[in-house]
Amino acid sequence: MVDRAGALAERVWQRYDRRERLIRYAVLLATMMLVYWAVRDIDIFWPWVWDAPNQISSLGARMWPPDPSRLAAIVNAMLETVHIATLATLLTIFVALPVSYIAAQNTTPNRACLWLGRFILVSSRSVNTIIWALLFVAIFGPGVLAGILAIMCRSVGFIGKLMGEAIEEIDRRPVEAMQATGASKAKVIAYAVVPQVMPAFFAIVILRWDINIRESTVLGLVGAGGIGVILQGSIDTFAWPTVATILLSIIVLVLIGEAITSLLRRRVI
C-alpha cells in the first residue's frame, strides 16, 4: 500500500523538516531509553505487579462498608486538622510578609537582604511539609505544635514567593507619584505598594489555606497531630472499615474547604 502510494505521487509531503524530525527522534529515543532503564533496573518483584489489581480490590472489599462507630473521634480529629491549617496559615502571614518584602527586588533594602530573603524562600519551598514535620516531631515531640510549625515552615516559602512576585509586578507610577510628594519610604509603601498588592495577598492566603487543609491531613502519619494519627492507628490495627470512614470524611473536608475558598474568593476579591 505504501509502495502504491509512493508510485502514484511524485511529490512527497512531510510534516516536519529534517532537523525537526531529528530532534523529535532524539527526544523520543532518549525518553524510551530512560523508561527502559527505569523498568529494567527498578527493584520490583514483577509477579506482584500482575497481582496488584487483585490485592487492591480485596483491600477495597475489606473496607466496605465504612464503620461509623468512631465518628465522634474522627470529627474531633478533623477539627484539630482544620485548626492546625488555619492557625499555621494565620501565623505564616506574619513571617511571610517581611520575607517577601526583602525578597522583592524593588523593595529590598540592600543586596544582602535580597539574598537572605531568597535563601529563606528557597529552603522553605524545597523541603516538603512532611519532612518539616519529621524534623519538628524530633525536636518538640509528637503533637500539634510540630504540625503547626511544619505547615508554617512550608507556607512561608509559598506565600513569600508569590507575594514577592506580586510586589515586583506592581505599577511603578503611583510609587513615583508618592515619592514626588516627599513621602518617606514607609509612607510610599503604605500608600502605593500595599493597596496594589492587597488583592493578590488575599488570593494567595486563601489558596494556601486550601492547600494547608490537605497537607495537614497527613501530618499525623509522622506524629504531628490531626486526622493522620487516627488514620495511622486504624491502618496499623487493620481496622479497614474505620479507614474507609476516615477517607470519606477527608473527601468531605476537602470539598468543604474548596467551597469555602471559592466563596471567600468571590466575596473578598
Binding site: A180, T181, A192, P195, P199
Partner: peptide, 21 residues
C-alpha cells in the same frame, strides 16, 4: 530631599493615582 520634594508638586501623564484607594 523629601522636605524639598514636598514643596514641588507634580502632575503626571498617566495620572499615577493609586487606583484602589
Amino acid at each position: 530631599l523629601r522636605r524639598a520634594r514636598r514643596k514641588i508638586g507634580m502632575v503626571f501623564q498617566g495620572f499615577n493615582l493609586i487606583d484602589r484607594l
